[in-house]
Design a protein around this nucleic acid. Structure first.
Lengths: 343, 343
DNA sequence: GATCTTTCTGCATACGTATGCAAATTGAAT
DNA sequence: ATTCAATTTGCATACGTATGCAGAAAGATC
């Protein structure tokens, strides 16, 4: 069953030329005469030859592999991003090697070793942080890193996020304008920059509008935790009339609790706002008002940053924040005249 | 910024031994004395040496890379499977290289070339078919293939699916027992074995129960197409009282149309049954009755088949079908006594 | 046609590792 | 201590490709 591979040497013999000639024909921009190219391509065709990427990488030092580190794909935002990233990189001749990881330092640490073993040309972490020691190791290995949807202070790490502060602020403004009085927040994981920034922006926005924040619980970006938080917050008599949930994935769980366990009407009794605008948010069953993270533009920025470092040897660290619009739908009361103003 | 890599030669020099000794220390099962191992590991530690997987692959002929071909990650079933596959393979020291592809022959064809260029040890296609020419090419290259959630006649291709025929039959039985009279089917893509088998099983089951199939439209595994089909089927006066939708992903779209466009009650006016049991199906907003594809067991079967071929040189082609239970929830009328019988 | 440039080709070597073989070391057995 | 077997080690080479260098071929110029 094991099959003899056809190599550049085989092609060279068949075409009656040297191995280097074959190599050059398959190396864009190398110096080859038209008739040499023709001979070689013909022979290659006949033998079914294709260059061995791995062998090539050994000498060029380029593997055309990008390592993607990701903690979980349950939140629809990430498969969506993965699909876009993969497609975009594929168009540039790169491919994604996937590393699933538990989102703690030990897990990331272990995986990062394997990652470097594969001689990846670059690393994207999706919603995963990185110890400074690791950042240093990647830098030492000459492998550029882009944190996707996660911020971090380290001066070696590129990062692409939405403008979470501003996003939180917009949502506060929207809810305040809607005349809500008791506003709650089920926050994103406080161990993540996204969670912290959205909360900070939200708090700042409320303060600016002169409205207080009634309650705030960390939802850990987890469905169960968020559901439990919702039960707790909405148990008492003077329940909130609005809640901003740190991402859509949790917001769906919260809406399920409010509607099906507590029999509350959305948005009649409570307004719910999420963050991300995953596809599901726009499906009628949820119809969730949410702040869009423009994943297409985030992916674009991620890819161009990464390729800039890899192919053009760039070395200025990018900290890119991308603004997204509030997608006003039916899960939250819409302030008088709000939609008109924005047309 | 480019950094000199530390190689086995560097370690050898530092430890005062030969390069081959270093190699052996890092090759499980090789013959090395304890004190040699100690010396080498110490030097390796100090220099931060780790073996280069790519260079290793050049000589062993094993890349420890599995190519995953996938058409789209919108249907939650696939990110879920991807996560499980990646985790399982990681535990065996393999990693997944992702290839996104449009689900037509040309797309698959193009991508399969790139795939082989990377010298992958095996290929998994998720819900993607493969021309016989391609199957032949992979066989010729000695690369085993497992079709995940897709059947195909080719005798060289392993495949792991749920028992789609039986699943379709179970659903028919359930709907018939529920006393439905006008039963419709929005089928999975007829270009796929899963779509065809589920439909065939469903038809057979209905026939066995003496109930006719009112309408059947191909939903192409696509939300929009399925929604359009629902509008068409449920437009007239004598609308169906039940519909089996070829997968959950489409079923959600159908439920949205029924509820929010046509103001029908589920399951009061119409029963809806899906296929897959993705996580979303159990969320209260949909609470979808559906046939579970046990993705954990499907992944297990896929991984063990693949590793059997790769590591033990197995060569019997597996066509594995895994039975799944019907998850009875609230989207379809439950036949009298049905739940009791099954306890 | 002779000379000078330019373009093309082959030779040799390098990338980082694994492994067959023979030499060297160790240990056991006498 | 001597012999023999078993274990460990180093040497040399191979994997499949890219590339600097020098020589060959092909054009360009007069």
């Amino acid at each position: 069953m094991r099959t003899e591979k056809v190599t550049s040497v085989d092609v060279a013999m068949r075409a009656g030329v040297s191995q280097s000639a074959v190599s050059r024909v398959f190396t864009p921009g190398a110096s080859v005469s038209p008739k040499m190219a023709e001979k070689v391509l013909k022979a290659a065709q006949e033998l079914g030859y294709r260059p061995n990427v791995l062998a090539r990488s050994l000498i060029t030092g380029r593997s055309r592999i990008i390592g993607l580190v990701v903690a979980y794909l349950e939140n629809q935002f990430y498969p969506d991003a993965l699909e876009r990233l993969s497609t975009a990189l594929q168009a540039h001749g790169y491919h994604i090697l996937v590393f699933m990881v538990s989102n703690d330092d030990a897990g990331v640490d272990r995986v990062m070793g394997e990652l470097l073993d594969y001689q990846v040309d670059g690393i994207i972490t999706a919603s995963v942080g990185m110890s400074n020691a690791l950042a240093a190791r990647c830098a030492a290995a000459g492998v550029p890193v882009v944190l996707f949807n996660r911020g971090q202070d380290d001066h070696r790490l590129n990062q692409v996020t939405s403008n979470n502060l501003e996003g939180g602020r917009k949502i506060a403004e929207f809810l305040a304008a809607g005349g809500h009085h008791r506003i709650a927040h089920i926050a994103g994981w406080s161990g993540s920059s996204t969670g912290r920034d959205r909360e900070a922006g939200f708090r700042a926005g409320l303060e600016a509008a002169g409205v207080g924040l009634a309650t705030c619980i960390d939802g850990m970006y987890n469905r169960e935790t968020a559901a439990a938080a919702a039960r707790e917050i909405f148990a008492g008599d003077d329940r909130p009339d609005a809640v901003f949930v740190g991402n859509d994935h949790m917001a769906f769980a919260v809406m399920d609790v409010l509607r099906f366990e507590l029999n509350l009407d959305i948005p009649g009794d409570v307004s719910v706002v999420g963050y991300d605008d995953v596809p599901l948010a726009s499906w009628p069953a949820y119809n969730l008002t949410t702040l869009r993270q423009p994943s297409n533009r985030m992916v674009e920025a991620t890819v161009s940053t990464l390729l800039g470092w890899i192919e053009e040897g760039s070395s200025d660290v990018q900290k890119i924040q991308i603004d997204g619009p509030l997608m006003v739908r039916g899960s939250a009361r819409i302030p008088e005249g709000w939609l008109d103003e924005r047309l």
